[in-house]
Design a protein around this nucleic acid. Structure first.
Lengths: 134, 134
DNA sequence: AGAAATTTGTCCGTATGTATC
DNA sequence: AGATACATACGGACAAATTTC
């Protein structure tokens, strides 16, 4: 099989599916083993592990060597969503950065969700020219 | 080659080495390409990418497809300005918090200044009912 | 306690897709 | 269009931690 990832990458699709199961609590505590997930999604181990890494980074699961991946109950109703975006700087921010009106800024947003609603929203603004890819 | 990882895993060793270079600024902006790192450390692409993923998660670098990995570190002396305020929630934030239009939010703002202009602006929004950090 | 089976962790090699220069 | 660089995906192999018998 080639490697067509036209839409979402396969590991993202798998992660999305597993995320839904976790939220609906179809999986109570212990997740299926990587081998089982490989068979279910007809994916390689690396791809499955990549999907699990996404959930791990979101704090939805925790993985222990030799045991498996567990749903983190404490974070079951509290997880984090991160995204990076470019926005047009509001006047106050433009002034702070010493940029002209209408300039664009890079913003990293972290949303901590609890029980469906935001608990904290953190936004970090930077210049496009500063560090990192832009 | 077998897979002897008696001490630290190889990708951890590579990450440690790169971290040191970043901190000593031997790498100013653009990191070596993955191919170069493969040759330098005689490691496979996957291992190199695993090392870079560590640094990326630490926020030390940022990677862009087709371009490369850039150093992303706020390393230097800089002024920090902090303030706390209450603001009327913009519609997008109100929705995230599950609050009605016109609701108020508490915002903690941290401005890192460099050479007079803002380097980063961090804004943390919370409900008024939430007390303290976290 | 010991051995075997299970499960995750690490590493390699290859191939192809996608983004950028 | 071509070259370069990162992203995704597969397969195989062995190591290390845990559980099971």
């Amino acid at each position: 099989m080639p490697t067509p990832h036209y839409g979402l990458p396969r590991y993202r699709v798998i992660a999305e599916e597993l995320r839904g199961r976790i939220r609906s609590r179809a999986i109570d505590q212990l997740m299926p083993t990587e081998t089982v997930l490989m068979q279910e999604f007809s994916a390689s181990r690396g791809t499955v592990r990549q999907a699990l890494a996404v959930l791990r980074e979101e704090g939805l699961i925790a993985t222990a060597p030799g045991r498996g991946s567990y749903v983190r109950e404490a974070h079951n109703e509290s997880h984090v969503r991160k995204r990076e975006d470019e926005v047009f700087a509001p006047s106050d921010l433009a002034e702070l950065f010493g940029l002209p009106q209408g300039a664009r800024l890079r913003v990293n947003e972290t949303i901590v969700l609890r029980a469906g609603a935001a608990h904290t929203v953190t936004r970090v603004y930077r210049r496009l020219s500063d560090q990192g890819p832009c």
